[in-house]
Design a protein around this nucleic acid. Structure first.
Lengths: 404, 404
DNA sequence: ACATATTGTCCCTTTCAAGGACAAATCCAG
DNA sequence: CTGGATTTGTCCTTGAAAGGGACAATATGT
């Protein structure tokens, strides 16, 4: 018999055309809703007839629904189409070293109820039990929001995508922790776990309601750690072991300070919240003991002090800004994205640090245009990490697959 | 009027299915030739009838041709199909700081004539005139190899893909040099210019005759500079300004030595051939004057001396190996490829340096599997850079496009 | 009231894969 | 040497889905 090795090759079958166009239609409705069949046809550059067939199929499945009739300057009024996110919700979880945050969203990641939080239990087994209990409570409390479609969890660390295990989360002190399966079993719901940088990038990709949004970008979260999500061609780069994007641990200086990951001089060790605060206090806060008042100071407090005229606070922020820019240079040189998004506490001080970040970036970028790569801030009020967690669940329903 | 912003969205039309399958068929013929229609159908998991239509279309266009009839254990003998590379050739050019290399290949990048070389003229205008003259001479000399389909040129620097200009090639001393258009005009042939790392990655992608070849990998060329080509999902990552992959200029130590790019402590400054030789001589060879016998020593010579028992040569190589591994750690953490290819003079010493490279990589890789990412050497005898240059021309004819 | 514009549906055509029938070519067993 | 088995390549029919246009329904402006 001949060796038939089918590779990853997906030959186009009779249904392929339809499949492609259904995905395109669904995603256009998602990003442009409310939208009429006729507008959708214009957007797709195809016939209204063809679109009607696709749309009716999607309605049949319950993916979308017909809503109000819209207004038109003249002619028959259009019937608007919407993604059907009624009576369905998602629970988003953001695990961080000290506190864990929880939010209920609709299928599109829009916040449906206020964010709650509780202290993070560091012992994995107890943590899972605690989290499950709280998710159940939230779902009972918000029964009106409809059936829960799934739980999305973001973690400050590396996640094995197959088994949903946390491979390594230095800031949590977790190594090889099984999260997804115990949670899914206890909740009876699908659970998705992902690294925070990747999840935020996914949410950003999803948030793009307009078609001119970047399809090649990098999302950087600066918090207790530093996470990076890379999106190329509207697709999240995962890599062989789902750890692509770990720019947080490429060095600024291999002879630099030790990092939680075990290596030395990692970018993260220069720009994490703890690094910024350590700089302010003039000592390494990872070394115990730390006085209570020192341990209690957050980056938000530091920014407030800087704004209040505290020169040392300002200096600490600008120092972090410089390192942030230098590291950004590496990201820009390596990936050459069309846009960079930055999230995290420090973005609250963006007006104070932007110039420093940009000049440091320009210092290391290889060409002036690369140095001028646009940077956008995602403010903490938008809960980017929780939106990322929600996107993990939602993504499944809309994921575009690449063909050929 | 409604805002119609067509994005990059490619709606599947009636012809899309065919287009996808034609591409798949052509690429399967390329990677599996010689192959019969029936085998192709089995490989594609489709009917022989459908394949026949595709194949006949491809024959009509002259992309492939029917060759000898093959052998079969029983039944009717198959007629083999081949990529039509007869009577067509490609000129591949590898520009390097001291010499420029030239090779004639067929459409599949297979060497058709011996490699020639000549000193690189550093003044761009004179260089182009010289190169064009030599290409013309080669084409006249090898008239028997058929019509030239195009010229592929690899450059140790950044290339602007739209206009085919060299944005910056520190090692050549070129900045904003227009290469493609003057060459194309003078030769009357299509000319493709690309960065060496990207071209080598492309060639590697192409070389994969078997279906199990990696589709997510990184190609690293270590020579006068350090170039990196990233391939994700069988597609070369170019980035917004076609400078993605410039890992050569991410820092090992921002307080390190100045690099040709203007920044400090770049990986390239630690592992380029010049860096290795500088280490051997204990002085920075970029600083003039350099004695003739010192300037004449190549990395190949250095390797020979190391093998001959020269401890200083060995130490210089191992030092480079260590830095190579440390930088590889950054690449692996950032991209998480399933495979790494390394090309360049230093690969001739791979048996001497592999252990050092691997241990340095493991030191910085975030997880043991990432640290154990398989590494393959592409030996200089295969002329990876020239194969890359040839691939630039060939790629146009076979390029798979991503749909949806 | 009538021309014009817009939306959504319906029907016919065209493209191409799915599926099967079939002739040609070849080997093997008797 | 002949008939059965097997494989290849071609041909024809069927079915899915886009292309294209006609048309009724609906709304606006003169």
């Amino acid at each position: 018999m001949r060796s038939v090795h089918p590779q990853n090759l997906r030959v186009a079958t009779r249904g392929t055309t339809r499949e492609i166009n259904r995905r395109i239609a669904l995603n256009l409705i998602r990003t442009n809703q409310p939208i009429s069949r006729a507008d959708l046809a214009r957007l797709m550059g195809t016939r209204r007839g063809a679109v009607s067939l696709l749309v009716n199929e999607l309605i049949q499945e319950g993916a979308i629904f017909e809503g109000a009739t819209g207004e038109a300057k003249r002619g028959r009024k259009p019937t608007f189409l919407y993604i059907d996110s009624r009576k369905r919700c998602v629970v988003a979880v953001d695990i961080r070293p000290t506190r864990t945050f929880l939010m209920v969203t609709d299928l599109l990641g829009r916040q449906l109820a206020s964010v709650t939080s509780f202290p993070t239990e560091r012992e994995p087994k107890r943590f899972v039990a605690d989290l499950v209990k709280r998710i159940k409570a939230v779902l009972i409390e918000h029964k009106d929001l409809g059936r829960c479609q799934g739980v999305g969890v973001v973690v400050p660390g590396m996640v094995e995508s197959g088994a949903g295990r946390v491979l390594l989360a230095p800031n949590l002190g977790w190594k090889d922790v099984s999260l997804r399966d115990p949670m899914a079993a206890a909740l009876g719901l699908p659970v998705q776990i992902e690294n925070s940088g990747k999840a935020c990038a996914l949410a950003q990709l999803w948030a793009s309601r307009d078609a001119k949004a970047p399809t090649n970008f990098v999302y950087i979260t600066v918090s207790d750690g530093l996470g990076v999500g890379i999106v190329l061609g509207s697709e999240l780069v995962r890599g062989q072991h789902n750890i692509a994007g770990e720019f947080g641990h490429i060095p600024l200086n291999i002879d630099g300070p030790r990092c939680g990951c075990g290596a030395t001089g990692c970018w993260e060790a220069y720009v994490s919240n703890l690094a910024t605060l350590s700089r302010y206090f003039g000592r390494d806060l990872r070394e115990r003991p730390v006085a209570a008042d020192v341990a209690a100071l957050t980056v938000d407090d530091l920014i407030a002090r800087a704004r209040g005229g505290d020169g040392k606070a300002m200096a600490a922020l600008l120092s972090t800004a410089r390192y942030l820019g230098l590291g950004l240079g590496s990201v820009v040189n390596a990936i050459d994205p069309s846009h960079v998004y930055i999230g995290g506490e420090i973005t609250a001080a963006w007006d104070l640090i932007e110039a420093t970040v940009r000049s440091a970036l320009a210092e290391r970028a290889l060409t002036p245009p690369a140095g001028a790569t646009p940077i956008s801030i995602v403010p903490p009020e938008q809960y980017p990490r929780l939106r990322g967690a929600a996107a993990l669940v939602a993504a499944g329903s809309f994921a575009e697959r690449v063909v050929a």
